[in-house]
Write a protein that binds this DNA or RNA. Structure first.
Lengths: 197, 197
DNA sequence: ATACTGTTTAACCATTTGGTTAACAAAGGT
DNA sequence: ACCTTTGTTAACCAAATGGTTAAACAGTAT
């Protein structure tokens, strides 16, 4: 592993755990097992190192989502595939959602410009398809954007608010993991169940 | 308004926007229109000022939720009332969810001790009731905790991830507000629709 | 061997930041 | 009037923090 990779991985860990403001360059250096000056040698400054980490994180999500949203499947199949693959992915990267959401709120202008730069989940195709299936009588009449929001909410929220969830419904780490496994299928079932005619 | 209140309100604004690590004592003082030394005169240090703000924020949520969860209503009525009143409340405090979630992740030990101190939404009664209504054939057989998580997800997530949502489904501030108004009723409908027999 | 290149480090620096101090003002009690 | 308590401020301080520098090191070509 190159030094740059060591730094990047360390930065990912520290930034995702502490956020931009809470992360310390020294802590990243320690985590990477190198000198603090190397951070600046490889990544100029904190802001740029952060951007590298953030864009990488966000960049992993968008294409995956778009691939499913823009496929040839039916709406029901897309919902099933999306929830399953997204939850599977986030189980492996449990800090990602909260990280992205947090930094998006703290740094909206930067993120928005990055998103409008093409690198963004684009649901327009799916929305049109939902409207068509409503017209065809396959799906009950609902607001497509609300449906999308429901899907995102049920898949992402449990991870973004992991601590809160564990505290509220009183479950251990392992119980949480079991529930997330179950959600790989239950979320899609729940949603489809409520919108199919 | 007393000086202490001015500080508290200023602190609430700054902490909710920047988080604990990102907030600056000077900025809070400026926002309150007083000298920085007053912060320490009234609230000892940053940690304690933050705790005051956080506990107040969290303390507003818990009792409201418990009142509904432990009432004499049916499960369907509880879901309807909860989503409606929670969304109404959060529309007036849109920074609250993200703030609570963020600081919970960054400071789990503190929050957990605070929650276990009684000050916590307690869903045990509601869970038992859901199990009963399943046994009675009113509700389809589902995992009650998953149902709770679905409810929390659909109500809280759009506010917690406000920026992300606006960017993803491409809506303006006013469209967002309209959607949240609509969600006061649509969320409960969606959920009840999917679980009623 | 020597010079040259990119890599890595220890020591250092400037600024920011949370926090303190000491003086000052305003109010209240005697 | 005078003293005590409470509220408020400007100036200051020590630690933390992001960032820089100059020297050492390692590999490579000459």
């Amino acid at each position: 592993m190159t030094t740059e990779e060591k730094i990047f991985n360390a930065a990912r860990i520290v930034f995702q755990k502490k956020g931009f403001a809470g992360a310390r360059m020294q802590e990243i250096a320690d985590e990477a097992g190198i000198n603090k000056a190397m951070l600046h040698y490889c990544f100029k400054n904190k802001q740029l190192l952060f951007q590298a980490v953030f864009m990488n994180a966000f960049g992993q999500l968008a294409p995956q989502i778009n691939a499913i949203f823009n496929s040839q499947d039916t709406v029901f199949d897309k919902i099933t595939k999306f929830t399953h693959s997204y939850i599977s992915f986030v189980i492996l990267n449990p800090y990602l959602p909260q990280f992205v959401i947090q930094e998006m709120n703290n740094n909206p202008e930067f993120v928005m410009s990055f998103m409008n730069n093409g690198n963004r989940p684009n649901p327009t195709v799916l929305i049109a398809q939902i409207e068509k299936e409503i017209a065809d009588g396959i799906i009950k009449p609902i607001n497509p954007k609300q449906l999308l929001l429901d899907i995102f909410s049920m898949t992402i929220f449990p991870f973004a608010a992991q601590m809160m969830v564990k505290g509220m419904i009183q479950i251990s780490d392992s119980q949480f993991n079991e529930m997330m496994e179950e959600r790989k299928t239950s979320v899609a079932e729940q949603i489809i169940n409520s919108i199919k005619k």
